[in-house]
Design a binder for these strands. Structure first.
Length: 506
RNA sequence: GGUCCGUUCGUCUAGUGGUUAGGACGUCAGGUUUUCAUCCUGAUAACAGGGGUUCGAUUCCCCUACGGACUACCA
């Protein structure tokens, strides 16, 4: 091959990028890097009315968070810019004109109202109105009126659009790198608008022109574009250009029920649908993001990569570098995949276990200050992290598993009390306190054998002491190794908690 | 409605013209943890249905059913 691989991710800035879009970006990135090619971000903002403030920055930030930074983008110029279609406006008109000149397109003067009326009439018969080969000669366009009239219309400022002249009765066989051959008859296709009356191209024209000009070699996009594939291939033909290779990705579906994943599913079932938190500028409504919900970008990416692709082995955990190495577009699954929030948490659990203890300890220390107004030392949070890390999925779980190190219990879980604090517990604990008061070294290494020895000497079962001790320290029958807790809490605090339990539970 | 795409455990998926149809998540049961969580072990559970082709189909073909996308001067 003479041409270097160039792929693009081409979102429209109409709102936050959701995880389906992010996965499309990911697969494009992986494909590009796998083939030592270029990953391009092109912003498709040809519809001004749908532009949403902040959406473009959101896309950039989301990609950066995931480590999918484009090689060329509106934020990082390359040789093929600009990378925002609104800034390429001047380019498209000439290409539309070129298609008119070579007979592949024509002017149409039908107003939106005219078309609405035709649609309604047609629907009254239970039919669908199609602007196409069978009726284009009867509609208000440059194929029907003379060339002179067409010119007059245009010069007089009459609004017009430019439509593609869909060839009749052509049988197309188009190759898709994921789906194989796709058969399409052009008879069913309509004369799509390529150029709008507001002077902007539609997606179809802008997309093909830009992909050509930017020398895109592979178009990897969502399945929702499959119905437009024929049009796009025909457009390349009409221009006399070589079409890129295509691959259409399966959709991400709702975890419960039917249909594709939507923002509402996240709200309803309490999982993020967006990589980053998003505040709707119009309504102020907030949608949660993976980043703000404490998912690691590595976990998010790994989960997304496996949703519709695998390398044929039983491996499930991949770094981004490994994904680049193993990825192949042919191994992308054809069918849509239901999103699985539980499995996503499992990925997160796997990844947080790989994070260095000191990193978590530092974060936790900051979190304690910000969220709980607790000042502590790095040394202490580091001890807590090493004690509790294996049970974490999200960073704040650290608090849920360790809050009793920062605050003494004020009440006791009734169910646990019933199990751990029996009739004969009080005298045992009274003796136990006296024993502890005589001890000085509360390091785990020293205190553990001492306590065990004391229990044995007293002729007691371990449960008689260990269970009430845990209850007194935590307020509940949970938490890490009880000797670790005694040691970390220290002599004074441990004894105070025992005394409080003694007073409260009798 | 039309066009196109799809269909393996509940979910994500592996796989082959002859397999005990494999893994992971989930669920359940044991074990570890004298607690809880983690962790470990085990169990559970699938080739949508009907026709072909074939000595033999989950695998190849057709039909049906079901699911999905699209059907805008939106992308």
């Amino acid at each position: 091959m003479n041409s270097k691989v160039r792929v693009r991710f081409a979102p429209s800035p109409t709102g936050p990028l959701h995880i389906g879009g992010l996965r499309t970006a990911l697969y494009n990135y992986l494909f590009a890097k796998k083939h030592e090619g270029t990953f391009i971000l092109r912003v498709e903002d040809t519809d001004n009315s749908r532009y949403v403030e902040g959406a473009e920055d959101y896309i950039k930030e989301a990609l950066d968070w995931c480590g999918l930074t484009p090689d060329e983008s509106p934020f990082h110029d390359g040789e093929f810019g600009p990378y925002r279609q609104s800034e390429r406006k001047a380019i498209y008109k000439d290409y539309a004109q070129q298609l008119i000149d070579n007979g592949h397109a024509y002017y149409a003067f039908d107003t939106p109202e005219d078309l609405d009326k035709l649609r309604q009439e047609q629907e009254a018969f239970g039919d669908k109105f199609i602007y196409g080969a069978h009726n284009r000669n009867e509609l208000n366009n440059s194929l029907k009126v003379s060339e002179k009239e067409t010119l007059e219309y245009i010069e007089s400022g009459k609004p017009y659009v430019i439509r593609f002249k869909m060839p009749m009765a052509k049988q197309l066989a188009i190759r898709d790198n994921i789906r194989g051959n796709i058969q399409i008859k052009t008879n069913d296709l309509d004369d799509k608008i390529l150029f709008k009356s507001d002077g902007m191209p539609t997606y179809h024209l802008a997309n093909i022109v830009d992909d050509h000009l930017m020398e895109i070699t592979h178009v990897i996009r969502g399945e929702e574009w499959l119905p437009s594939l024929a049009l796009h291939v025909l457009l390349y033909d009409a221009f006399g250009w070589k079409a890129p290779k295509f691959a259409h990705l399966p959709l991400i579906l709702k975890p419960f029920g039917k249909g594709k994943l939507s923002k509402r599913d996240g709200d309803k079932h309490g999982f993020p649908v967006f990589p980053l938190e998003w505040k709707d500028p119009a309504t102020g409504a907030i949608s949660s993001g993976y980043r703000e919900e404490f998912y690691l970008p590595e976990a998010t990416i790994n989960m997304l990569a496996l949703l519709g692709w695998n390398d044929g082995t039983e491996q499930e955990l991949y770094s981004l570098e490994e994904l680049v190495d193993k990825f192949s577009i042919e191994r992308v699954h054809k069918a849509g995949a239901k999103f699985n929030p539980e499995k996503t948490k499992w990925f997160q659990h796997q990844y947080i276990q790989k994070v260095d203890d000191s990193v978590l300890a530092e974060e936790f220390k900051d979190w304690l200050r910000a969220e709980k107004q607790i000042e502590t030392t790095l040394d202490f949070t580091l001890k807590i992290v090493s004690l509790l890390k294996e049970r974490l999925t999200f960073m704040p779980d650290l608090w849920n598993e360790s809050y009793f190190f920062f605050q003494a219990p004020t009440q006791f879980n009734p169910k646990s009390s019933k199990k751990a604090w029996k009739e004969d517990t009080a005298p045992i604990m009274t003796n136990f306190i006296s024993f502890l008061e005589a001890e000085t070294d509360f390091s785990k290494e020293q205190i553990q054998p001492k306590i065990k020895g004391w229990i044995t000497d007293q002729g007691l079962g371990f449960g008689k002491v260990m269970m009430p001790l845990r209850l007194a320290l935590v307020g509940d029958m949970k938490g890490p190794d009880v000797f670790e807790m005694v040691s970390l809490l220290g002599k004074t605090e441990a004894i105070n908690r025992l005394k409080f339990a003694l007073n409260t539970l009798n």
